[in-house]
Amino acid sequence: MFKVTVTIDNDILRFIDEQAQGNRSGYINAVLTEHRRCVLEAEMIAALKQDIEDTEYQAEIAAWDRVVGDGIHAEG
């Protein structure tokens, strides 16, 4: 963990103090962790939508699906 110094508007700090129940760092970390999760989820959804719209990529996936399903199994 790192300690950092940030500047926060007075109204925001009052809100944090109301919500934090005495643990500003814990509250801020929880809020930012949730925001990060939402951003990553949105990025993954956007990437999946882009993959779906990419006909060349979809054709390559279909070709690999045919190869995987051809009944040839590697011996381990």
Results as ranks from 00 to 15, higher is better:
56 E>L: 13
25 S>T: 15
6 V>T: 12
43 E>F: 06
40 L>M: 13
53 E>H: 04
22 G>C: 06
24 R>D: 05
36 R>G: 04
72 I>E: 14
45 I>D: 07
6 V>H: 09
70 D>G: 02
33 T>A: 14
72 I>M: 11
29 N>I: 09
14 R>V: 07
12 I>E: 04
69 G>D: 13
28 I>M: 06
76 G>A: 05
49 K>W: 04
73 H>C: 09
38 C>N: 15
10 N>W: 05
57 Y>I: 01
12 I>W: 00
9 D>M: 04
14 R>N: 14
51 D>A: 05
55 T>F: 09
55 T>M: 11
23 N>M: 03
50 Q>R: 12
37 R>V: 06
36 R>Q: 11
62 A>N: 04
75 E>F: 09
10 N>F: 09
63 A>G: 11
48 L>E: 13
18 E>G: 15
37 R>H: 12
71 G>A: 05
76 G>F: 08
61 I>E: 03
5 T>M: 12
64 W>D: 06
72 I>N: 13
57 Y>K: 07
20 A>Q: 01
25 S>R: 12
49 K>A: 10
28 I>F: 04
62 A>C: 03
14 R>Q: 13
75 E>G: 03
46 A>P: 02
27 Y>M: 05
22 G>W: 03
55 T>Q: 14
40 L>P: 00
3 K>S: 14
40 L>Y: 08
45 I>C: 05
23 N>I: 00
12 I>G: 00
61 I>L: 10
68 V>T: 00
58 Q>L: 11
10 N>M: 08
42 A>G: 10
67 V>E: 07
36 R>M: 08
24 R>S: 02
73 H>Q: 10
44 M>S: 12
63 A>N: 11
36 R>A: 12
14 R>K: 14
11 D>H: 01
24 R>G: 01
11 D>T: 01
7 T>V: 09
15 F>E: 13
72 I>S: 14
69 G>E: 13
6 V>A: 15
36 R>E: 10
57 Y>T: 00
27 Y>I: 03
42 A>W: 03
32 L>P: 00
37 R>A: 15
11 D>E: 11
48 L>F: 13
58 Q>V: 10
52 I>Q: 10
46 A>R: 07
23 N>F: 02
22 G>N: 02
75 E>Y: 08
53 E>L: 05
51 D>G: 01
19 Q>C: 05
47 A>I: 06
49 K>L: 09
43 E>D: 10
41 E>S: 12
64 W>M: 14
11 D>S: 10
15 F>N: 09
6 V>I: 15
58 Q>I: 10
15 F>C: 09
32 L>I: 07
24 R>C: 04
4 V>W: 05
66 R>E: 08
6 V>K: 09
73 H>D: 07
51 D>K: 02
41 E>F: 08
40 L>G: 01
27 Y>Q: 02
47 A>M: 11
41 E>W: 03
63 A>R: 15
25 S>W: 11
66 R>N: 02
35 H>S: 09
13 L>P: 00
45 I>S: 03
26 G>I: 00
65 D>Q: 13
67 V>N: 01
21 Q>K: 15
